[in-house]
Amino acid sequence: MSQLFPTVAVVGSGYMGGGIGQSLALAGHDVRLADVSARHAVAARDRLLAESDHFVAAGLFPAGSTDLLAERLTAVDSVDAAVDGADYVTEAVSEDREVKRESLQRIGAVARPDAVIGTNTSAMPIGELAAWVPGPQRFLGVHWWNPAPFVPGVELIPTPDTDEQVITAVEEMIIAAGKSPARVSDSPGFVGNRLQFALYREAALIVEEGLATPDQVDTVVNSTFGFRLGFFGPFAIADMAGLDVYAGAYQSLQRAYGDRLAAPSVLTDAIAVGRLGTKSGGGLLDIPADQLAALIEYRNTAYQRLSELRRELGPPPGLG
């Protein structure tokens, strides 16, 4: 098995699959695009090249990107033609269980025995999908985020059957494409969408209760805690704020909303042993004491620069 995966097949060349193909082609892979028909695959390639021209003109892609994509991206007549002989196959069809089953079974029937197969599902458990793939040791979830060329994170979701060498090889491919892979365990929604959809549900409840309008909720999120999430995850933010502060807030939330918003045990357990965050030398993260001043300076600089960037860009069109 080649860790470089020189030939990649993308099955499903819509905006998600097309963006993945674009990213891997720009990283030097030969990418074959396949869809429900040759016409769809050709249209996708044409769209990706036109997009690249626009991105180059806007300074989002480096000069020469379209020429590289024209050389590396190929639209093929069928899924079989794309998968046959490919080193790595990414399945990026619609989030429909039956469509996934048909696609993965077809891929598995044609792919080389040593070809690695990744699925780009957003929430379906990888272990369930693995049942449709011959050789589950070469199968894993590889969850990109839309738009794939610009969002850096990629979740890697192995099953207990996935070979460690396969995980490492895909991880290296993702890093070489300029992305930031995170290995996570297999569960519905994985990490990103479990969090994202939990936030959406709570936001919808706020609207349903008449506490705020959708645009007001969005303004609060993107200008407060969501503003900080571009640099820090929830545990780093909590450690800098103080876990005791969080515990106090949870008491108010629990009184109002019940156990749905009670303090999680991972928080109260940390407080019980004196781990309050950076103020006590450690919380749920172990941030070295000699790095704390530099961390706070980084935080303040990052927030100020992001504020400047937001002012420079202005409000999102249609959402100002």
Rank of each mutant, 00 (worst) to 15 (best):
M1W: 06
M1L: 08
L4K: 14
P6I: 01
T7Y: 03
T7M: 07
A9D: 00
G12R: 03
S13L: 01
G14R: 00
G18E: 00
G19F: 00
G21M: 03
G21V: 01
Q22M: 02
S23R: 00
G28V: 07
H29W: 01
D35H: 03
D35P: 06
V36M: 12
V36K: 09
H40D: 13
A41L: 05
V42G: 10
A44P: 04
D46R: 06
D46C: 08
L49N: 03
L49V: 05
A50G: 11
S52L: 03
D53E: 13
A58K: 06
L60M: 13
A63I: 12
A63V: 12
G64M: 04
G64N: 03
E71C: 11
R72T: 01
R72P: 02
L73R: 02
T74C: 10
A75T: 02
D77P: 09
D77R: 08
V79C: 09
V79T: 09
D80S: 10
D80I: 05
A82H: 00
D84V: 00
D84E: 10
A86I: 00
D87V: 01
Y88L: 13
Y88P: 05
V93F: 04
S94P: 08
R97T: 13
R101K: 11
Q105C: 14
R106Y: 04
A111Q: 01
D114H: 01
T119Y: 04
T121A: 02
S122H: 01
A123L: 07
A123Q: 08
I126E: 06
E128N: 12
L129H: 08
A130N: 03
P134E: 07
G135C: 04
F139N: 03
V151R: 00
V151Q: 00
T159A: 05
T159K: 06
D163V: 05
E164A: 15
Q165S: 15
I174V: 13
I175F: 03
A176F: 07
S180P: 10
S187M: 15
F190M: 09
N193V: 02
A198V: 10
R201I: 11
E202T: 06
A204H: 15
L205Q: 15
A212N: 07
V220P: 08
V221H: 09
S223D: 14
S223M: 12
F227K: 04
F232R: 09
G233K: 06
F235R: 13
A236E: 15
I237S: 05
D239Y: 06
D239S: 08
M240F: 09
A241G: 14
V245P: 11
A249G: 12
Y250F: 14
Y250N: 04
Y257S: 09
R260N: 09
A262M: 08
P264R: 07
L267D: 07
T268E: 11
L285Q: 12
D286Y: 09
A294R: 06
I296Y: 15
Q304P: 10
L306H: 11
E312N: 13
L313Q: 10
P316C: 10
P316G: 10
G320N: 13
